Computed example of a mutant assay.
Amino acid sequence: MLKHPLSKLFAFAAVGVLSQAAMAYDGTINFQGEIIDATCSVAPGSQNKTVQLGKIVSRTLTGLGSTSTPVDFTIDLLNCDTASAKNAQVTFSGTADGTNLAIANSGQTVAAATGVAIQLKDSAGNPIKLGVASPSYILGNGTNSLQFKANYLATKDSVTVGPANGMAQFTVAYN
């Protein structure tokens, strides 16, 4: 009688071992992050974003210093605690055009637009130079959306047509 329950146990064990062998790995998921000591954390959707400046008619940029209509974008901060800091400033960096005021056009094709750069502005519409901190944004506890603008800026009297793309990194400082 003992032989029968023992054989059932061995049968179940054998099925379990064989079913493990049938499961194969189809891929790997890597998880990345960092635990920081800061007033806020940058929302994941703000860490790597794309701002669409649109298709701008070349005659809109009528000469040196002329601009396209600004496009709004935000950098969202999460879990802010104003006990340690009340304000945030954002510093943008990247490849600058010749005047260091704006982001250089990084169009990678032979037909890339020329005479144009991408200008960054604060929420009031004032230009922000690359490498220079923005004006202070007052923080509240919880979630905060820092408002910015971007537009094309003519860096020469004439602008040629083609892709006009750029990239900037940003750093948030709290005070």
Rank of each mutant, 00 (worst) to 15 (best):
M1P: 03
P5Q: 08
L6H: 00
K8G: 09
K8D: 04
F10K: 13
A11S: 09
F12N: 03
F12L: 12
A13I: 13
A14V: 14
A14Q: 08
V17L: 15
L18Y: 07
S19D: 06
A21S: 12
M23T: 14
I29H: 11
G33N: 08
A38Q: 05
A38N: 07
S41L: 04
G45H: 02
L53A: 04
G54Y: 03
V57I: 08
R59K: 09
T60D: 00
T60W: 01
T62P: 03
L64W: 02
P70I: 09
V71Q: 06
V71N: 03
F73K: 08
F73W: 02
T74R: 07
I75F: 06
D76Q: 11
L77W: 03
L77C: 05
N79L: 09
C80N: 02
T82G: 11
A83L: 14
A85W: 08
N87F: 13
N87V: 09
Q89H: 11
Q89E: 15
Q89V: 15
Q89S: 14
S93Y: 02
G94N: 05
D97G: 01
G98C: 04
T99G: 07
Q108A: 13
Q108L: 12
Q108E: 13
V110C: 06
A112H: 04
A112D: 02
A113N: 04
L120R: 00
A124L: 13
I128L: 14
I128G: 01
K129E: 12
K129D: 14
V132L: 05
A133C: 10
P135G: 09
Y137Q: 06
T143C: 01
T143E: 10
N144D: 10
N144A: 11
N144Q: 03
L146S: 05
Q147C: 08
F148Y: 10
K149S: 06
Y152T: 11
L153P: 05
L153E: 07
L153M: 14
K156G: 11
D157V: 09
S158N: 15
V161Y: 00
V161S: 10
P163D: 14
A168S: 13
Q169M: 07
Q169N: 15
F170E: 08
